[in-house]
């Protein structure tokens, strides 16, 4: 029995077909997530994309943090307007050839928060999550990504964002869970690992530890920045892979402010080397035999 003529089911099916049609040209869809805010997901995403692209991969990033988009700024394409072409929205490219799509490119002013048009803002919790899922679906399906080796999808904090992405992409190449070596961070991250494992399978989940240590700029002495639990042990305990550690380096944030991935700006630093190692681990992770 139909729905009296609106064809809502077929409209939703068309949306899914559009999405899957677009995603078919992308070899590895990779979610970068945490559940926790402020752990360095976007910094890792921009640098992984740059490292992968420098290694010859066709890479793109989708900033799925609709309310706090940062990737356009971090990759230096904030001012680039989106163009509408015959195959969808043409995303700008950041060196060395990373396609970038972010809500930031659609907002009018720096200080403009994301707001949806509505006849009344009262009770917007009823429909806001649906609107955000629809926006994310459009970003995935209506962007002319072309053929890619990697699409890195940078998720906002909150475990609910994992469920939203999984409803759109039931199969992905990898879910990278970013954590800090602290109990507070891992308290949330463990929830994200559980959810990602349930939704996509443990075989695609990998943990990256950020801010893993600090090297003194004067004497080169290395210290742990936090004295919390080891993230590799947490990954082992939860039955998922561990992909590497990134040391703390203030240069990462400075490079992000300049719109240039640190991995290209400070190639000789231990931090850049660690980022390249995680990119290599990711590549091996998604291309390993099933």
């Amino acid at each position: 029995m139909g729905d009296a003529g609106s064809g809502v089911a077929s409209q939703l099916q068309d949306q899914t077909l559009r999405l899957h049609g677009r995603m078919a040209a992308i070899r590895h869809k990779v979610a970068i997530l945490s559940g926790k805010g402020g752990v360095g997901k976007s910094t890792l995403t921009s640098n992984l994309a740059a490292a992968l692209a420098e290694g010859g991969a066709r890479a793109a990033v989708l900033d799925a943090d609709l309310h706090g988009p940062a990737l356009a700024k971090m990759l230096g394409v904030r001012g680039a307007a989106l163009r509408f072409g015959p195959d969808g929205v043409e995303p700008p490219e950041a060196p060395p050839g990373i396609k970038v799509l972010s809500m930031d490119q659609l907002l009018r002013r720096d200080e403009a928060p994301l707001r949806w048009k509505a006849p009344t803002s009262e009770g917007d919790f009823v429909w806001r999550a649906s609107a955000e899922a629809a926006a994310l679906r459009e970003f995935l399906s209506d962007t002319h990504w072309g053929a890619l080796d990697f699409l890195l999808i940078d998720l906002a904090p909150g475990t609910d964002k994992i469920s939203t992405l999984a409803s759109l992409l039931p199969k992905i190449g990898a879910a990278i869970v970013v954590t800090l070596p602290t109990e507070v961070s891992q308290l949330t991250v463990r929830k994200s690992i559980t959810l990602a494992t349930e939704l996509w399978g443990a075989s695609v989940v990998g943990v990256v530890e950020n801010m893993a240590g600090y090297r003194c700029g004067r004497c080169g002495h290395e210290e742990r920045l936090f004295q919390g639990p080891d993230s590799a042990a947490m990954a082992r305990e939860m039955g998922v892979s561990f992909l590497g550690r990134i040391p703390f380096d203030p240069g990462l944030a400075e490079a992000a402010d300049r719109g240039a991935p640190y991995v290209r700006q400070a190639r000789e630093t231990p931090c850049a080397a660690a980022l390249r190692a995680v990119a290599a681990a990711l590549r091996s992770f998604v291309e390993r035999p099933a």
């Binding site: 707001r115 609107a131 459009e138």
Partner: peptide
């Protein structure tokens, strides 16, 4: 269906995109 029709029509503070 137009590309990103939903986002463009629903953004309250969006900027015009080319085309």
């Amino acid at each position: 269906v137009e590309p990103m029709e939903f986002v463009r029509s629903m953004l309250a503070s969006g900027r015009e995109a080319g085309g």
